[in-house]
């Protein structure tokens, strides 16, 4: 090697590895949030790069809404096993049953209910730091996040009073009960993520690629038709998220661009069946990836409000 030049992926990678290792060095009980989505898939590769040949020195955590794409769950479990990591799963269902979370009347989405479940898991395991795959280019409020994002003992984010982050010196100091959210992919764009997945030949859940699926039209989006309700002894978890007779249905050749759960992920019509196809699609895209998420459409400040309350 005579050429001391790094390209943008190398630069983003070394920055993220540095952050991962700072977490391992500064915190007692870190955890890595792994959903099986494309961003957290990159986090796992970065964790391998940061810590191998040792074990990745933190467990993985996923909060399930109960409305997940089955493909995602299968992939998540398999990937965690491959890496020899401990995977902790906490669910909105458990939290509803125990009363730790309550659903607002008429509300179908369980997106907000992930907050008390996440905070509950942080308390249960006394995690002092949670690594997440959020990127600043996803959304306006995220654009203001630090790499090390301080949360008070209620898990709240105070955007007006963030610790200044200077050079690559991250302040990880906490008092009891406080914790940190750390975002190694802060500077990555959607394009960087796909280019990295391609370069690293990472496996992703099949729903990122083109497939045929029955969808229905709601709120300007094509939402997947949820799986049939088979267990009559329990209330339908998808009640309210099923197509009404008046809503248009269509069998589409489609894929997901970003994954929330089934009831808030808009499907995009797409023939993309390889990483190159996806990269070409991202390059030509005329809407942001969050444009296909129902949870962000609520209001201009939807994300900011959720983050202040402890969302990741």
């Amino acid at each position: 090697m005579t050429n001391y030049h790094l390209d943008h992926l190398d630069l983003l990678e070394t920055e993220a590895i540095h952050i991962m290792r700072e977490v391992a060095g500064e915190f007692e009980r870190p955890v890595l949030l792994f959903s099986g989505g494309k961003d957290s898939i990159c986090l796992l590769r970065l964790a391998e790069k940061a810590f191998r040949p040792s074990d990745i020195p933190m467990p993985f955590l996923n909060v399930e809404t109960g409305h997940e794409f089955p493909e995602l769950i299968e992939f998540r479990d398999r990937r965690a096993k491959q890496l020899g990591a401990k995977l902790i799963v906490r669910t909105v269902d458990q939290a509803l049953a125990s009363g730790a979370a309550t659903q607002a009347p008429g509300e179908v989405s369980r997106n907000k209910l992930q907050i008390p479940v996440l905070l509950g898991a942080i308390e249960e395991f006394r995690f002092d730091c949670a690594i997440g795959g959020a990127r600043r280019d996803e959304e306006k409020a995220r654009a203001k996040e630090r790499f090390f994002s301080f949360r008070d003992s209620f898990g709240q984010w105070d955007p007006k009073n963030q610790r200044p982050e200077i050079w690559n010196l991250y302040n990880g100091r906490l008092n009891a009960g406080e914790n940190m959210r750390v975002f190694p992919l802060s500077n990555w764009t959607e394009m960087d993520v796909w280019e990295y997945i391609k370069r690293e030949k990472l496996e992703v859940p099949s729903i990122y690629f083109s497939h045929t699926r029955e969808c229905f039209r709601r709120g300007g989006q094509w939402l997947p038709v949820p799986p049939a309700h088979t267990d009559a002894t329990k209330p339908d978890p998808y009640a309210g998220a099923r197509p009404k007779p008046t809503e248009q249905r269509k069998t589409m050749v489609c894929r997901v661009r970003t994954i929330a759960d089934m009831i808030s992920t808009g499907m995009v019509e797409s023939p993309a069946s390889s990483f190159d196809d996806i990269i070409a699609e991202v390059a030509a895209a005329r809407v942001t990836e969050r444009g296909s998420r129902a949870d962000d459409k609520a209001s201009e400040a939807a994300m900011e409000d959720r983050k202040k309350a402890g969302y990741f």
Binding site: K140, A141, A143, K144, K160
Partner: peptide, 17 residues
Amino acid sequence: GLRAEREQGITIDVAYR
């Protein structure tokens, strides 16, 4: 990006683009 900024019409924190 932040609501307070929209209300006050000023930029109060570092935003990355």
